[in-house]
Amino acid sequence: MTGAVRTVVRAPAEVLGTPSEPVDPTAPEILQLAEDLVATMRVSPGCVGLAAPQVGVGAQVFAVDVTGHPKARTVHGQLVLCNARIVEASQWQKGREGCMSVPDLTGDVKRANRLVVAGFAPGGTEEIEITTDAFEARALQHEIDHCAGLLFLDRVAGAHAVYARKVYLE
């Protein structure tokens, strides 16, 4: 199975503000969705994560890969999780975030710097746990929020913590 590149929806699309449904990680359409999320993430410069609601699908599925990112400490490589939930969160820190669904803005969001997440790999029937920190922890929380119908803008302290995205000319 190979993934298709899907169109990324932008705020204020309704799907981005609606909590997603749990999925059957073994269902063929979920396996295809997982492949599509990875394919879409791979062709999007600077993208380290993508959730199903961002491609217009109200399902609790997302992909994350922080490999090679300068802020990453712990790196699990390409992760795709279904029905993910936070088991433990600690060491809260503020950090700047952006999002493909909110392309013109970034914001300061307080998130756990140490994290344990549980979920299912596509095709898997056993729940797995991932323990991580730093940038990978932030990316996982950002994608879990997407599955809950939240954008990073819902987590900023206020308008003073939202910024126009900088565009770097080559």
Results as ranks from 00 to 15, higher is better:
residue 79 L to S: 03
residue 28 P to G: 03
residue 12 P to V: 15
residue 90 S to I: 09
residue 128 I to Y: 00
residue 130 I to W: 05
residue 115 L to W: 13
residue 36 D to R: 05
residue 169 L to K: 14
residue 159 A to W: 09
residue 75 V to K: 00
residue 86 I to L: 09
residue 75 V to H: 01
residue 118 A to W: 03
residue 133 D to G: 06
residue 48 V to Y: 09
residue 18 T to M: 08
residue 110 K to I: 15
residue 85 R to D: 03
residue 75 V to I: 02
residue 122 P to Q: 04
residue 87 V to S: 00
residue 151 L to V: 02
residue 136 E to M: 10
residue 24 D to W: 03
residue 106 T to G: 10
residue 89 A to R: 11
residue 155 R to D: 02
residue 153 L to Y: 06
residue 145 D to K: 06
residue 111 R to E: 12
residue 143 E to A: 08
residue 61 V to Q: 06
residue 134 A to G: 01
residue 148 A to F: 04
residue 159 A to M: 08
residue 25 P to Y: 06
residue 38 V to Q: 08
residue 110 K to Q: 13
residue 1 M to I: 10
residue 123 G to C: 08
residue 52 A to D: 01
residue 170 E to R: 15
residue 116 V to F: 02
residue 84 A to H: 01
residue 161 A to Q: 09
residue 110 K to S: 15
residue 89 A to Y: 08
residue 11 A to G: 02
residue 76 H to C: 07
residue 135 F to P: 03
residue 36 D to L: 04
residue 33 L to V: 12
residue 107 G to A: 12
residue 149 G to W: 10
residue 136 E to A: 10
residue 86 I to E: 04
residue 57 V to A: 06
residue 100 M to P: 05
residue 35 E to K: 12
residue 142 H to G: 12
residue 95 G to E: 04
residue 121 A to L: 07
residue 170 E to T: 12
residue 146 H to L: 04
residue 50 L to C: 03
residue 168 Y to T: 15
residue 3 G to S: 11
residue 99 C to P: 00
residue 58 G to R: 15
residue 33 L to Y: 07
residue 125 T to S: 10
residue 35 E to V: 00
residue 26 T to A: 14
residue 66 V to T: 11
